[in-house]
Write a protein that binds this DNA or RNA. Structure first.
Lengths: 136, 136
DNA sequence: AATGTAAATCGTAATGACTCTTAATTAGAA
DNA sequence: TTCTAATTAAGAGTCATTACGATTTACATT
């Protein structure tokens, strides 16, 4: 997702354009890896001093709830990245070294068939982990 | 997995049969839901006082590394359950209410094809979340 | 059965991710 | 420009998890 689209969504939902939100979104738009809140803070407190934990976490939660960022859990920590542009449902390969992702145009829910009769499905998670070609 | 099998694996790997390990494994063998370390401690410190955090976490890690327990992350917390008996690879539906699971005899890796050429795949995760028939 | 020793455990303190609180600041509307 | 609700800063607090030194225990050996 690009920055203008992100701001469009924020504005539509009545959120203000603050300098901290600009800084956070800029970081995500320039990095396609999964980042932790700590990653953000480490960089930010260097380039833009005075960013607090609270601000980072509060905005990450906002961005995820609006579909601007996507979130996953890797080795016990929450990781975030810009939501993919793709309009079709897909999943991710995640490089355990560099954190970069690759879209996988496959969804296992397509092959479920009648495996879960009368189960009420809310959501699902499918991720592949390993090393990308560059990191081998 | 049943208790004798679990102890067989532990013995094979040179681990001692302690009363704490007996207590922990007993809890898992009597409950097929995903449990947190806290769940274990709450029950244990009532029935068997004097179980420490360290002992619980250390043994959970041991059991997972030996394939006796399986682990997943649900809403930010590590959850554990006895490893399935099934000899064929499968995945899980997890009820977000009661924590019970149902095996899903489907693996998305089968339909990957050539989607990840020259990527080195280490592992993958596929889980379906929702409500089981009893919890609706 | 007694002993020796490495493994295991206890109790507690420490860590680190994340959240909450209150007062001050700021974006954007009027 | 002024007003007001949204946002942020700073730091304290919470909670899951890990680390550590002292003590205890399983079990192999005698």
């Amino acid at each position: 997702m690009n920055l203008p689209k992100a701001w469009e969504i924020l504005k539509e939902n009545g959120f203000k354009e603050t300098s901290k939100r600009q800084q956070i979104l800029k970081m995500f738009s320039e990095d396609d890896r999964y980042l932790t809140a700590r990653d953000l803070l480490d960089v930010m407190q260097k380039d833009y001093p005075g960013m607090s934990y609270d601000t980072v976490y509060r905005n990450l939660a906002t961005f995820v709830s609006l579909g601007i960022l996507e979130e996953t859990e890797l080795s016990g920590e929450r990781h975030f990245r810009m939501q993919c542009e793709s309009d079709h449902h897909h999943h991710h390969f995640i490089c355990l070294d560099c954190g970069k992702i690759k879209e996988v145009p496959v969804c296992p829910m397509d092959m479920l068939g009648a495996a879960l009769p009368s189960y009420q499905i809310a959501n699902h998670k499918f991720e592949i982990y390993g090393k990308c070609p560059e990191c081998q």
